[in-house]
């Protein structure tokens, strides 16, 4: 968590979209930006350079104010997937409250996915987070592409991890909200268990989720 000020009734959380290069992390954020109403979110900040599409990272903030006055801000980040930007990934992962792992469904990208997942596990432990306890959602993106690994096969491979797996096509926006909803739920539950969001600050799970995920008309 980035910040929690009980007196000011303010909590700032961090979610990170992780995954191999070119798996569609930024596209996920762009799609969230398009699909969700400006009511619950801020502007998308793309910190990219001409040389490399995601040499730094992207940031999309979301806001929720409970009837009690408790303010929750969620900063959603992407990390650069390129192997050489490991230090940037580690820096962004610091104090994360939830991670979405965006994998590439295309045939022949499975080893890259596993490598990146390994890297996530390693970096989490290096910044002092446990992959066992951290809310984590896996998204298999690019379902719209022709040569993809069949869904049953993916589910069979990931089933032993017990992690929620979502099929998505960020380019057409399908599965993007589902993924975001799942990580929000998991993160809310984990925060609620630790800080008593509902009991102490009157933040209800359903209104929190619907408050942030307001679909734009």
């Amino acid at each position: 968590m980035i910040e929690f000020d009980e007196q000011q009734q303010r909590m700032v959380l961090k979610l990170v979209y992780y995954g191999p290069a070119l798996s569609g992390k930024t596209t996920n954020l762009l799609s969230l930006h398009d699909q969700l109403s400006l009511d619950g979110r801020g502007e998308l900040m793309l910190l990219d350079t001409t040389e490399d599409r995601t040499i730094y990272f992207d940031l999309l903030p979301f806001f929720y104010v409970a009837p009690s006055g408790m303010k929750i801000k969620i900063k959603v980040y992407t990390v650069p997937g390129q192997v050489r930007h490991d230090a940037t990934r580690k820096a962004v992962l610091q104090r994360a409250d939830g991670v979405v792992f965006v994998a590439d469904s295309q045939l022949g990208r499975m080893s890259v996915n596993f490598e990146s997942f390994d890297n996530l596990e390693k970096n989490l432990s290096m910044v002092g987070l446990s992959i066992e306890r951290l809310p984590l959602v896996v998204q298999f993106n690019k379902r719209d592409v022709a040569d993809v690994v069949p869904e049953e096969e993916i589910l069979r491979a990931w089933e032993p991890t017990g992690l929620p797996v979502v099929m998505a096509s960020a380019l057409n926006g399908s599965g993007v909200l589902e993924t975001f909803g799942k990580i929000l739920e998991a993160t809310f539950d984990s925060m609620n268990a630790r800080y008593g969001l509902t009991a102490r600050f009157g933040v209800e799970r359903e209104t929190f989720l619907s408050g942030i995920m307001k679909v734009s008309k």
Binding site: Y56, F57, L59, A87, T88, K90, A91
Partner: peptide, 13 residues
């Protein structure tokens, strides 16, 4: 934000 990342990365390096 760019500077933050730079500083973190440089410090880690």
């Amino acid at each position: 934000l760019t500077t933050e990342i730079h500083t973190s990365v440089v410090q880690e390096s």
